[in-house]
């Protein structure tokens, strides 16, 4: 092959890859862009056919989120978006804090100790990911009604542990296992107790891992839709379920719903920009990178252990 043909082939390859990435980018970003445009439109522009891409942008939808507005008039009965946002913050932060507080000792035990049933326990935690949520939510609903946890922040935080706790334990476990045993043994020789090893050696060394786990767990909680849909009421809805509330029997407030979605996405966007390079590795690490997890999955194929 001549060098000219070779470079031509390379050019074709590069152009094809570029075109493919642009197509993929459009495919993934378009819905978000569409919502962003919708949130800046007036009601007439939103429902116009064909869709208008040139329009006078308005911030009415965003101000309506705070003061409440329907058909140009102030409305007192509206989805209380600021409240939904606060609910999301309270519940997500609470859930992440609880699951890290409970997850650090659990992950440490699973990474550093050996005890009977260790692998089974780790697998039971992982298998929560495979169980259809409705199988959890029906018993939880009945239980919460009786315990008075229905429609409370505490109840939601506890329910969110089903999402974050397995994830936290597996992430932290793989981070803890990366710390060389020698450092830990050195600390013990110097007189550290087990809690001392955890506090003075393991935690400081895995601080980056813990912060990534915190942020990813926060994003999972922020995204949660299924559990709050059934376990929360109008006072405790987070933003995800709150956005649906703009659909009512009389009308659908598309503009306000789009604005709510955009505002709800802002914390996630900021956080995901912060931890961009960790996200992909974090999402797969528990399952793929960890040789122990891999053999565990292959040995016990059925998640019925849950």
């Amino acid at each position: 092959m001549t060098s000219a043909a070779k470079s031509y082939q390379r050019l074709v390859r590069q152009v094809a890859i570029a075109l493919a990435s642009i197509a993929l980018l459009l495919w993934t970003v378009f819905p978000f862009l569409w919502i962003l445009l919708t949130s800046l439109k007036s009601p007439a522009d939103i429902i116009s056919v064909p869709p208008s891409f040139v329009f006078t942008p308005t911030l009415d939808n965003y101000s309506a989120l705070v003061v409440g507005e329907q058909r140009g008039q102030y409305s007192s009965t509206r989805p209380d978006f600021p409240r939904f946002f606060m609910n999301s913050l309270i519940v997500s932060l609470g859930a992440v804090a609880l699951s890290v507080a409970a997850g650090i000792p659990a992950a440490c035990a699973l990474a550093r100790f050996s005890f009977p049933g260790k692998n089974a326990l780790a697998f039971v935690l992982l298998s929560f990911r495979f169980v259809p949520f409705i199988a959890f939510v029906i018993p939880l609903y009945i239980l919460y009604q009786r315990l008075g946890l229905y429609n409370t922040h505490a109840g939601l935080i506890l329910a969110y542990q089903l999402i974050t706790l397995p994830f936290t334990v597996w992430m932290l476990r793989s981070f803890f296992m990366e710390i060389p045993l020698e450092i830990q043994e050195a600390a013990k020789i110097d007189g550290c107790s087990w809690l001392g090893v955890l506090g003075r050696v393991i935690l400081p060394l895995s601080a980056p891992g813990i912060s990534v786990t915190l942020i990813l767990g926060f994003m999972f909680c922020w995204n949660a839709f299924n559990y709050p849909l059934m376990l929360a009421g109008r006072q405790t809805f987070p933003v995800t379920v709150g956005a649906i509330q703009f659909i009512s029997y009389e009308q659908v407030l598309w503009g306000q719903m789009a604005a709510a979605t955009i505002v709800a996405a802002v914390p996630q966007l900021l956080l995901s920009l912060m931890v961009q390079q960790y996200i992909v590795c974090g999402l797969t690490m528990g399952a793929v990178n960890d040789a122990g997890a891999a053999t565990l999955i292959s040995r016990r194929a059925s998640p019925a252990a849950a």
Binding site: F130, V131, P132, I134, A135, I138, P139, S302, P303, A304
Partner: peptide, 12 residues
């Protein structure tokens, strides 16, 4: 709940 269990078995 019965449907949830059936779905769980399917997933398994």
């Amino acid at each position: 709940m019965a449907q949830a269990v059936v779905l769980l078995l399917l997933v398994v």
